[in-house]
Design a protein around this nucleic acid. Sequence first.
DNA 1: TGTTATCAATCAAACGTTTGAATGACAATG
DNA 2: CATTGTCATTCAAACGTTTGATTGATAACA
Lengths: 196, 196
Amino acid sequence: MADNDCRNNLISAATPLFAAKGLYGVSVRELATAAGVNLSMVSYYFGGKEGLYAAVLTEQFAILGKLEDIAQMEIDTLQKFELYVRATVSRYRKNPYLLKFYTSELTNPTASFEIIIKPAIKKVVQMLMDTFTYGLSHEKFREGLNPSDTVLALAGMINFYFLLEPATAELVDHSPKRDEQLIRNIMDIFTRGILR
Amino acid sequence: MADNDCRNNLISAATPLFAAKGLYGVSVRELATAAGVNLSMVSYYFGGKEGLYAAVLTEQFAILGKLEDIAQMEIDTLQKFELYVRATVSRYRKNPYLLKFYTSELTNPTASFEIIIKPAIKKVVQMLMDTFTYGLSHEKFREGLNPSDTVLALAGMINFYFLLEPATAELVDHSPKRDEQLIRNIMDIFTRGILR
DNA sequence: TGTTATCAATCAAACGTTTGAATGACAATG
DNA sequence: CATTGTCATTCAAACGTTTGATTGATAACA
């Protein structure tokens, strides 16, 4: 097996397994078999099962950093929010496992939560709050709206849509071809909701 | 030990443990010790660990049925949505474990998902969609809004606020005394977002 | 030849479940 | 009224299996 194939195969195979069943729902043997490598390679490359899990999580959440750039862009405040929503949708479409790790850690946190997930989420929420506060101070948005409640509402609209898919797939069309309509629907509500 | 104390103790002790660590994150010994009962009582009363988990889940989701009554009430359509939001908030406040089971099953579904969680969620979403469609046909709401996208947006605004608490507690005040402001903030955005 | 990578085999520990005995309440029997 | 039998409940102990991790040998390569 070529250099580092073993390590890469483990991460690739572990990602969907951990996403579907969680850290304690998969055994090391299951991970090794799925990757087509020897069982002991998990300890050899990652120091153990939790190390592999942390490696998967780190890879998954590396993408999230790009969201912070939105705040510095020289575009309209409302456009920044739309950019956030669009980036979120395309991120979940490109990586169908990200949301699983995201919410799995929120509900059943492992040791990785404080180190990887929590800081990543805080940065995004902070960025959104800063953006909203800027819009407020420049008299674009209505007075009286609470910054944190408002940005969490926006984040909730888009994230919850994807989170609920396993339960509502038979009730609602969640296919990517409806994404554009979904984004417009959300931005439509949000824009009218916060503008003067 | 009095009649059925053993069974009740197991459910009471298992609820916070399963909520915090998930089905596979807790051992039967841990559950029995926390309940102060013998290890074999789990199998005796519930047929095994998964049986106890299912019993906990059933008890937790029994409350969710009340939401359906909202649709039949003789009140304004918008008031029905506000009632849904208020009921959701008070439900999470009264039972801090419900959301954990809710989202844990959505991300890492066990055998109980199809039987207990999925039907419960579908009923609520269907009720909300019916309510919105009624409002649409009676010309209260703007044309062009997609029913499913819109009600999932409302549900997301309130549910995501609670889901994100472990990550944003240091950034945002999630205390119950802010609930009224939170509800008004959400309904404010939603109302302006969907009204003509 | 020393280093890195991989393997099958093995380990102790923990897992969920089952067992057979002991307990106490209660009704039936004499 | 005392005795017997039945029943659900609880217990400590053990069950076989699976767990995550480690070992020492072996191969590939520098």
